[in-house]
Write a protein that binds this DNA or RNA. Structure first.
Length: 288
DNA sequence: AACTACCTCAACCGCGATAGC
DNA sequence: AGCTATCGCGGTTGAGGTAGT
């Protein structure tokens, strides 16, 4: 970042005072950003750095509030942002982190490199919350939490496992810092979730069905999840259109009990029957 | 082709926390 | 200590796109 010279700071201060004095006269723009506005904002951030958003907006000649500029930069323009749909790995981590932190989107987004709190929030609202609504239960209810834990997570992890490439499985035999860090994040939060579930659930489950335990999640992560060479979230052989678990995917899972319950052989935890969770066959077809 | 319903996500708003005067 | 400006966060909205009829 280029250091702002003192003389420029003087002018910044003076101009800002002028700007504030006539603030009421300036009509602020709202709505979508134009390419011109974007390039001005980027240019002036490169000159002045981030922060002091109101004055930055003024110097860039943008009829925008500082707030609007900050939002545009943070959610769209800043470098190293990831675009496109959330990978199953990212979805898994969002679910785990939400169990732990609740609606603290910024906190959750911290663990997802290149993702914004806005994206995490949108995912939760459009996918998770919507599904809770379809199941006629509150998104924060124990019933829905159990549903996520016993139905959604196993299927998500199975999705990750089934779509990873042999190449990555080969790569996973090595290790790296980013891999270990990411693995730790997921495991820590999975353990946290397990503790919460075990504490509050007193339901007897059939022994032929299970959710992943910590050892299995470890194995899954070691097998597949992280792109070890780049330190980024892995592409895992996924194309964008496969990132999301579509209702078709879930219908396939729902109709393929053997496949989706492949955790069963080694797991100590068990998959709750759909009836126990208050889910009908119809509900399962609604699965994201 | 036209209409409608639904979905996605960028952007706005309000509020609380913090910093600076 | 109190006031004001700024920042950052979470909730909400609505424009534009897409799928279904």
């Amino acid at each position: 970042m280029i250091k702002t010279p003192p003389c420029l700071l003087f002018h910044v201060k003076k101009d800002l005072e002028d700007f504030i004095s006539c603030k009421e006269k300036v009509e602020m723009r709202k709505g979508g950003w134009t390419l011109d506005e974007d390039s001005k904002l980027i240019h002036y951030i490169s000159l002045l750095g981030q922060g002091r958003w109101d004055s930055l907006a003024h110097f860039a000649g943008l009829k925008r509030t500082g707030k609007s500029c900050r939002l545009r930069w943070m959610n769209y323009l800043r470098p190293n942002l990831r675009r496109g749909k959330l990978t199953p790995q990212e979805q898994l981590l969002i679910l785990l982190l939400h169990f732990r932190f609740g609606n603290r989107w910024a906190k959750i987004a911290e663990q997802l490199p290149g993702r914004t709190d806005n994206e995490v929030k949108n995912y939760w609202r459009t996918k998770v919350q919507k599904h809770a609504k379809q199941l006629h239960c509150d998104v924060n209810s124990l019933q829905f939490r159990d549903f996520l834990y016993y139905q959604w997570l196993p299927r998500l992890t199975e999705q990750i496992r089934s779509t990873s490439s042999p190449q990555e499985q080969l790569m996973s035999s090595s290790s790296s810092t980013s891999h270990n860090n990411s693995t730790e994040v997921i495991l820590e939060n999975f353990t946290f979730l397990q503790a919460g579930i075990n504490e509050s659930t007193n339901i007897t489950c059939p022994i032929n069905q299970s959710t992943p335990n910590v050892a299995q999640v470890t194995s899954l992560i070691d097998d597949n999840i992280w792109n070890l060479s780049s330190g980024n979230w892995t592409s895992s052989g996924f194309e964008d259109e496969f990132y999301d678990l579509s209702s078709t995917d879930m219908a396939i899972y729902s109709n393929s009990q053997d496949q989706c319950h492949s955790w069963a052989s080694a797991g100590s935890e068990v998959l709750l029957p759909d009836e126990t969770l208050g889910l009908s066959d119809v509900d399962l077809w609604l699965f994201p």
